[in-house]
C-alpha cells in the first residue's frame, strides 16, 4: 500500500509541489539520525484523502549542514512538524516563517534526538531483561 521514494534535498520543494496534486494530506513528517552514515534522514508521509494512496518520501541531509526548504507553502500541516524537527534535530527549514523551538524552552542547548546528544542529567540505565 505504501510506496517509498527517495529524493534529493534540492528537489524537495519542486517535487512536492507536483506531488501535492495527488497527495493532499500530510499526516506527519519526522527525522531519523544516522551518525555513522553522517546523515539525517527526513521522512514525509504523504497521503491522498480520496484514494488513501500513501507515499513515504525520504530525503537525506548531511549532518553538518542539515538544511532543506520548508514545505509550509505546500502543506500548511508541515508548520509544527518542521518546528519539532528543528527543535529535536536542528534541521533548518529554509522559508519557514516562524522557526522557533516548539517543545523545549527557547534557551535549550543542543538537539536532544540526535544520537550523540548528551546532557549531564542523562543517566543511562542498564536494561536487564
Amino acid at each position: 500500500m505504501s510506496e517509498e521514494k527517495k529524493i534529493a534535498a534540492a528537489e524537495l520543494l519542486i517535487e512536492c509541489r507536483k506531488l501535492q496534486a495527488t497527495y493532499d494530506y500530510l499526516p506527519f513528517m519526522t527525522a531519523i539520525d544516522y551518525p555513522e552514515k553522517n546523515i539525517i534522514e527526513l521522512v514525509y508521509r504523504l497521503q491522498s484523502t480520496a484514494t488513501n494512496e500513501t507515499l513515504m518520501l525520504k530525503v537525506e541531509l548531511p549532518r553538518d549542514k542539515a538544511e532543506v526548504s520548508s514545505l509550509i507553502s505546500v502543506w500548511p500541516a508541515a508548520d509544527w512538524h518542521e518546528r519539532e524537527v528543528y527543535d529535536m534535530f536542528g534541521v533548518k527549514f529554509i522559508g519557514h516563517p516562524d522557526l522557533r523551538r516548539i517543545l523545549l524552552p527557547p534557551d535549550w542547548q543542543g538537539y536532544p534526538l540526535l544520537k550523540d546528544y548528551t546532557d549531564p542529567n542523562m543517566i543511562k540505565k542498564p536494561v536487564t531483561i
Binding site: M88, R101, L103, L104, P112
Partner: peptide, 16 residues
Amino acid sequence: MGYLHRGVEKMMENRV
C-alpha cells in the same frame, strides 16, 4: 507548548 515535555521519543530509544 512544552510544559509537559518528557522526551518520550528519546526515552524509547533506550527501552526494549
